[in-house]
Structures are given as C-alpha cells and as structure tokens.
C-alpha cells in the first residue's frame, strides 16, 4: 500500500443505491405541473380541429 491510506469499498453498498433509485421512481408530479399539462376541456380535440371540406359551389342557372 502507498503511504497514504485510501478508503476501500465497504460491503453492502448496493442496498442504499437501490433505495435511492426506488425513491427517484416514486416521485410525484406537482400540482403546478399537472395544471400546466392537463387536458384543457374547452380546447378542441385534434378531431374537432379537422376543418370541414369546403362545399363545392352549386352551378346556378341565372
């Protein structure tokens, strides 16, 4: 070993790492985020946005 003593891995480090990952996966969205991303009921859906085909002008006999 060198003169300086360095830290060596300790057993059991994996358990806390898995907990941290689980904690991250358990995060919940804030109300602010949900308010921003929520579907707006008064906003037309994509289908609604489809514009009706223009009506062909009738031949009008004058």
């Amino acid at each position: 070993m060198s003169e300086k003593q360095y830290k060596t891995p300790r057993p059991g480090g994996a358990a806390r790492i898995k907990e941290v990952w689980s904690e991250r996966r358990s995060r919940k969205p804030s109300k602010t985020l949900l308010d921003i991303l929520k579907r707006k009921p008064d906003e037309p859906t994509r289908d609604d946005k489809k514009v009706a085909k223009p009506v062909e002008p009738r031949d009008v006999e004058l």
Binding site: P29, I36, L37
Partner: peptide, 29 residues
C-alpha cells in the same frame, strides 16, 4: 413557467446529485 421547467424541478432536481453522492459514499470511492 413552461412544462419542461416544472418537469425538471419535479423529477430531476436533486436526483442526479443523489445518485453520485450515494454511489461515492456507499462504495467509499
């Protein structure tokens, strides 16, 4: 504020730092 900014605040803030800190500390790097 836009959705991405709030998404990052809700899902990322502190999370990646914690991954490093935990790995470094738990395995004595």
């Amino acid at each position: 504020i836009d959705g991405w900014e709030v998404f990052c605040k809700d899902y990322l803030t502190g999370a990646i730092q914690k991954e490093w800190d935990t790995t470094e500390r738990e395995w004595n790097l």
